[in-house]
Amino acid sequence: MRTRLTLVLAGAALLVLAVVGVHAVSELPAAGDVPHPYGARAVAAAFGHATANAVMSVTLDQRGFDTLGEELVLLAAAVGTVLLLRELAAETREKTEHGYGPEDVFEALRLVGYVLLPVTLLVGGYIVLHGHLSPGGGFQGGTVLATGLYLAYLAADYRALDRLRPPGVLDATEGLGAFAYVAIGVSGLLAGSGFLADWLPHGTLGKPLSAGTVPLLNLAVGVEVGSAFVLVVGKFLEQALLAPDDVPEEG
């Protein structure tokens, strides 16, 4: 009964929203013809600061404050996830046999994993460092770096992964990455240009050393994001591997 009422309420609400929405959106120009005054200014500003990737210029230079907040949302989530998935004193930890030990891995998979791991890390590093020149940046590159480490888990086993994640180190790199971003921002204050201002020499457009502080900020973000994702996925893996068998899968 309640379920049916809920569906009716939601259905009616969605219908109304759809109708009003269609009426409202019909007042917009067609997709492709929407004017972008801010966008045009942003592109001009990107040129002004010799940043080839205008999106990166907006993200880290013009609207860097937003990105600071966003990065800290990720930090909050990583820290929060570690907090929420922490072991309680009452829980006993059986870290003996996992479901996926070295002898269970196919040789082919192990080989591919070992080969792909350094390649992935290299690609991730490239994406982070070239964010101001080509699509990419700290967030994208950091994610690739983090998933690269999980190749170690897939190719070997949880113990190998655990060795690559000594406790406390990742929390430190994550926090320090975020703090580095803040510090670079403060350096702008001290240099007299304003918080998060791009005050370093801008160089020439398209060269690796251009766009002032943007590559540095990318690096800080990359470190933070990579650490955060390794932490988060590691915590979930821990839960999955240590869960008792009788937790039901369906509600």
């Binding site: 004017p35 005054p37 801010y38 045009a40 200014r41 942003a42 001009a44 500003a45 002004g48 907006v58 230079d61 013009q62 609207r63 860097g64 404050f65 937003d66 702008g188 240009s193 304003g194 918080f195 998060l196 201002a197 791009d198 005050w199």
Partner: peptide, 30 residues
């Protein structure tokens, strides 16, 4: 204004003329 982008830093370039009352002095910052 953050990141050093005060209004007028760009010299008020807005591409097309602004249709609002801002006078073409907009900034790209936050």
């Amino acid at each position: 204004w953050l990141s050093g982008w005060s209004p007028g830093v760009l010299g008020g370039t807005g591409g097309t003329g602004s249709s609002g009352g801002t006078g073409g002095h907009e900034s790209v910052g936050i």
